[in-house]
């Protein structure tokens, strides 16, 4: 059996960075909608639907979705790693999390592009 040390420099750095970059993207997206609301003096249903019919905002919203799901993955994985010790149970829960998150991503894409 090959013994490898799986902790060390850079291990987990990518996740740490992803968590922060996606957080900044989500803050910017929140500010974007705040700016839209301020510019139009509020958001009603018609404006909301018109904005999401806009191709650019659709793509931006999908990017937001990817950020949310990736961010959620890093955070939930941290939580599962901290509290679930049996490897089999943890792996099962982690796989379920990934499956659910990818499902949410598909759902979001479908919602955005099926809207008239």
């Amino acid at each position: 059996m090959v013994k490898r040390i799986v902790v060390g420099a850079h291990y987990g750095l990518k996740d740490w960075l992803v968590q922060r970059v996606t957080a900044v993207i989500m803050i910017v997206y929140t500010l974007l909608w705040l700016a839209i609301a301020l510019y139009h003096g509020g958001i009603d249903l018609a404006l909301w639907q018109a904005m999401l019919a806009n191709g650019a905002l659709r793509v931006i919203t999908l990017l937001l979705g990817v950020s949310v799901l990736w961010h959620a993955w890093v955070g939930m994985r941290d939580i599962w790693m901290d509290y679930i010790k049996p490897t089999a149970v943890r792996l099962t829960v982690e796989v379920l999390t990934v499956v659910v998150l990818i499902g949410y991503g598909g759902w979001l894409a479908q919602l955005l592009w099926s809207a008239k």
């Binding site: 949310v68 799901l69 959620a72 955070g75 939930m76 939580i79 949410y104």
Partner: peptide, 10 residues
């Protein structure tokens, strides 16, 4: 964060 994942996103 856990609440947002479990309830918020859906």
């Amino acid at each position: 964060g856990a609440a947002l994942f479990l309830v918020g996103i859906p």
